[in-house]
């Protein structure tokens, strides 16, 4: 009688790739809810557009590559990319920009490099940077927090804005969203400093509530909560997140202690913009990160330092996307040079 032969081990864990991705997507929910609460329904519309675009692009490219569409869609990796793009861009971004970004992320950044597991750059962040450098106006106009806005962005208003239903054109966009949008706290802070104001003067503005940006604190806190759940579920390991947060804290702390007038406080850095989203959901993308534990700490530290440096000295108010892409480039080097000492080997072997 012949039996089925297989290589050992004959058992494995039940945590498959698709489940990992699914959990990542689910852990984003607290942050999304906070974002919807403070910045309106636009984010939900963006998620819808992004998911549809990403899944279609993934299916199309898998067909072109003669590979199983079902396998690709069921691993949920395109879904996570879509949601990350959607929460990163301003909620009232025109639909065609979202489509361009998603298409670029899936087709160019992911599949032209060989698909899942082979891409060098984080697809969501590459798409974000593409949109940021191509459409700086739209990408820097964030929706005003509900507390400060004249009127809350309803779901219909969001649809109207995003799909430019009333009249097409950029001018109209500007007028239409003027009532809802304003610079982000980090942007405001940077502009104020460049205009000769001190940080404490800048923090008196209405986008800040004394310490951090209105609404942004809670959004970051929600992403932090989602990240902690992921850590608990062992979906991610702590090294990258801790690396990023520690590096930001240390760098901004030193800067703030040396010159509080021209530096943002560690609190502002940690709970503004995309810090927590980056630390737990974006930089922890295993494909584009370093793999060893020490390598991951370093990888995270590089991102953290870059975020601080670009925010403080660079031209962009938030720096998450650039920092992540630059660290992505370093990942292969980190993996090559930081190897764990194998059992029975002396250090350095």
């Amino acid at each position: 009688m012949a039996f089925k032969i297989a290589s050992s081990p004959h058992v494995s864990t039940s945590l498959q790739t698709n489940k990992v991705m699914q959990r990542v997507a689910l852990c984003l929910i607290p942050g999304i809810l906070a974002q919807v609460y403070f910045f309106g329904m636009g984010t939900l519309v963006q998620i819808l557009i992004a998911v549809i675009t990403c899944l279609s692009a993934e299916a199309a490219i898998m067909k072109l590559r003669n590979k199983s569409i079902k396998n690709a869609l069921s691993d949920n990796s395109a879904l996570v990319t879509a949601v990350l793009i959607a929460v990163a861009i301003p909620p009232l971004t025109p639909w065609w920009m979202t489509v361009i970004g998603c298409f670029f992320a899936i087709v160019i950044v992911k599949h032209l490099y060989g698909g899942l597991g082979n891409n060098i750059f984080n697809p969501a962040m590459a798409a974000y940077v593409l949109l940021l450098v191509s459409f700086p106006l739209q990408m820097t106009n964030w929706v005003a927090p509900s507390e400060l806005a004249a009127n809350q962005v309803s779901i219909t208003a969001a649809f109207a804005h995003i799909f430019e239903l009333s009249t097409a054109g950029l001018d109209h966009f500007r007028i239409a969203v003027d009532g809802h949008t304003m610079a982000t706290p980090l942007d405001t802070f940077k502009t104020d400093l460049s205009m000769g104001m001190t940080s404490s003067e800048s923090l008196q503005r209405n986008v800040f509530d004394g310490m951090t940006g209105v609404g942004w604190f809670w959004v970051n806190l929600a992403y932090l909560a989602g990240g902690l759940i992921m850590l608990k579920l062992k979906v991610i390991r702590w090294h990258i997140s801790v690396g990023i947060l520690m590096a930001i804290f240390v760098c901004s702390g030193i800067g703030f202690l040396l010159n509080p007038d021209t530096h943002a406080s560690p609190m502002l850095h940690l709970f503004s913009g995309g810090t927590m989203l980056c630390a737990f959901f974006i930089a922890t993308d295993p494909v584009t990160a370093a793999t060893s534990t020490r390598g991951r700490l370093l990888f995270g530290a590089i991102i953290g330092v870059l975020i601080f440096v670009i925010r403080t000295y660079g031209g962009y108010p938030d720096a998450v996307a650039f920092a992540v892409l630059l660290a992505n480039m370093c990942a292969p080097f980190i993996d090559y040079y930081i190897r764990p000492r194998s059992y029975g080997h002396r250090a350095g072997n």
Binding site: T17, L116, V287, A289, T291, R296, R339, P340, S342, Y343
Partner: peptide
């Protein structure tokens, strides 16, 4: 079926010989 490696690094965490 074997799927694409997503470089999650769980194998390195599990390896008792501290390999990659």
């Amino acid at each position: 079926d074997e799927k694409a490696c997503i470089r999650c690094g769980e194998c390195a965490v599990a390896c008792p010989a501290l390999l990659l």
